[in-house]
């Protein structure tokens, strides 16, 4: 094998490669310049949970503890309470509501069992994944952090890419 053949072959290879590269330059780009650009996710993405409310802003959760029972990493803590007031005045949709609803994101594995277990469609996975914090104890999210009405005000709140909006504020039971 002579040096000349070697040089020719290498040059051809480079030209082949560069042709591919140059051909891609004018095409549409998939890479998102996160965090400089906003990101959207797929509808079935499992991010930080959302606690939903009904059309009148009443919490849907009835504190039945089924999500906590289904949770494999035992990260949901609930305290139920009775609210004897009429519908217009109470916090939740039902007399029974969650006084305390905590999810410990130190432990949550985002498996989605809680969402499947919920008989009232009160809890779903949202699309917020930016939950890194400087302090571990901040990963314990309370009802105030999880309620959809509160999360909508946060700059981290995001919706899914598709038109199928599973993240609607109120969904038919």
């Amino acid at each position: 094998m002579s040096i000349i053949t070697d040089v020719i072959q290498s040059t051809v290879a480079v030209i082949k490669g560069m042709r591919r590269t140059l051909a891609e330059i004018p095409r549409e780009k998939w890479t998102v310049q996160y965090p400089d650009d906003p990101i959207t996710v797929q509808p079935r993405y499992r991010g930080m949970h959302l606690l939903h409310v009904d059309e009148n802003g009443k919490e849907k959760c009835v504190a039945c503890y089924l999500c906590a029972a289904a949770c494999p990493s035992d990260c949901i803590y609930i305290e139920a309470e009775d609210d004897p007031r009429p519908y217009e005045q109470r916090v939740g949709r039902d007399e029974r509501f969650a006084k305390v609803y905590n999810i410990d994101y130190n432990r949550c594995i985002f498996c989605g069992f809680c969402v499947e277990a919920c008989p009232k469609d009160a809890i779903t996975h949202g699309y917020n994944f930016e939950i890194s914090v400087y302090n571990r104890s901040d990963l314990l999210k309370t009802k105030n952090d999880l309620l959809i009405t509160k999360q909508k005000q946060s700059k981290n709140y995001r919706v899914a890419l598709s038109s199928e909006d599973v993240d609607s504020e109120y969904k038919e039971v």
Binding site: A63, C64, Y65, A68, A69, A80, E81, R96
Partner: peptide, 9 residues
């Protein structure tokens, strides 16, 4: 005990 917790808890 009304609406306090659930049996398995």
């Amino acid at each position: 005990y009304r609406h306090e917790t659930r049996p398995w808890e």
